[in-house]
């Protein structure tokens, strides 16, 4: 089995994000929040398990999870 990927960084395109909150709602570790502009940001990145549920469900294609192995 492949080694578990670790988060390196959340790439969030603020121009593309429409603040629908889908990623916030479904994040299993409660990492994401919407800011005062209704744009998503990683409030608790240290809790991220890089499951990428936010990335694959994002209807705005605004989130990309970069992992340590360089996988995206």
């Amino acid at each position: 089995m492949a080694k578990k990927k670790k988060l390196k960084q959340h790439h969030i395109d603020r121009d593309w994000c429409k603040g629908c909150g889908i990623c916030v709602h479904f994040c299993p570790k409660n990492v994401l929040e919407l800011d005062e502009m209704d744009k998503v940001f990683a409030a608790r990145p240290e809790d991220c398990i890089a499951c990428k549920l936010c990335e694959i469900r994002c209807p705005d294609l605004a989130i990309e999870i970069e992992t340590e192995e360089g996988g995206s």
Binding site: I56, R57, P59, A62
Partner: peptide, 25 residues
Amino acid sequence: THDYLRQRFFPHMWCPGCGHGTVLN
């Protein structure tokens, strides 16, 4: 995946939370 997009047209025209964006994804 972004290399398959015509990025100049983003953000797209769908409403916030529209499932069609997820289908595209």
